[in-house]
């Protein structure tokens, strides 16, 4: 069984990486979870997972200098594939190899979460959405975040990738999110998985280089991520053909 989710947002600053790791940790109670930093131009998962000194990263794998196994690390109950932050690493990386990376990882895990670039302006930025089975859209309750999130959904569904749900993040106390989330759901193909409150704990966790669910597992934001994980029904893919599935993931021919 494997299902690949791209954790995506059209806009930067929505807390996508924090959300990817938190969702991953929350899902790891029930599943074997692998988290991949697919934002190869602006990687930061390594800083969230205490891997800033990781020697081998996805950049080396995408440059064909290392096998994917050499860039996987067991941290906080997850398998983590961090990406490097150097410009040289980005330049030498062949984004198309991400297909093989996902295909290889898919043989040995239940869920893959791809932390995706917060943009739709290049092939590299969009590839994780194409490879994924479904996307989780991370939104703030603001007009730009919602309209950029809509764009991400339309790209995804055009490329035959479904929507698993929405995650409202950094929600301020003063915002009664229920009305906004109910109205937002009218335009999205998936439900709201949870609303995560803006959290000082999340900022502390980021500064400490630890995932939120390890740093402050009892805080309100952490509970919201667990709620999101619980409302996510993971689909059973056929393990046997997983490798084929991702190597041949292409846009539907009808386009």
């Amino acid at each position: 069984m494997v299902e690949v989710f791209a954790v995506a947002s059209g806009k930067g600053g929505t807390g996508k990486t924090t959300s990817t790791v938190a969702l991953g940790m929350a899902l790891s109670d029930r599943y074997d979870v692998t988290v991949v930093d697919a934002d190869t131009g602006m990687a930061n998962l390594l800083f969230h997972a205490g891997l800033s000194d990781a020697e081998t990263t996805l950049h080396d794998v995408l440059a064909d200098d290392a096998p994917v196994e050499a860039a996987t690390y067991d941290r906080f109950g997850l398998t983590v594939v961090p990406c490097g932050t150097s410009l040289d690493g980005f330049r030498d990386a062949d984004p198309d190899r991400l297909r093989d990376v996902v295909a290889t990882l898919a043989k040995d895990t239940d869920i893959i979460l791809l932390d995706s670039p917060p943009a739709l302006d290049s092939r590299t930025a969009v590839l994780p959405i194409v490879l994924a089975d479904r996307i989780v859209v991370v939104l703030q309750p603001t007009i730009p975040a919602i309209s950029d999130g809509l764009k991400v959904q339309e790209y995804a569904t055009t490329y035959d990738t479904d929507v698993a749900g929405l995650l409202f993040n950094k929600v301020r106390e003063s915002e009664s999110i229920e009305q906004v989330s109910e109205k937002t759901e009218r335009y999205f193909d998936g439900p709201t998985l949870a609303s995560v409150p803006e959290s000082e704990r999340a900022r502390e966790a980021r500064r400490a280089g630890r995932p939120l669910l390890a740093h402050a597992p009892e805080c309100e934001a952490a509970s919201a991520y667990r709620e999101a994980a619980e409302s996510l029904t993971v689909r059973n893919g056929a393990a046997a053909d997983a490798a084929d599935r991702f190597q041949s993931a292409v846009i539907p021919e009808s386009l």
Partner: peptide
Amino acid sequence: QSAVEAFLDDAEKIEAIKQQARSEA
């Protein structure tokens, strides 16, 4: 919040955003 809700009430504008994104994709 009411500005966000007003935006979400404008179904025509949102449909235009979605349509534009699909054709761009």
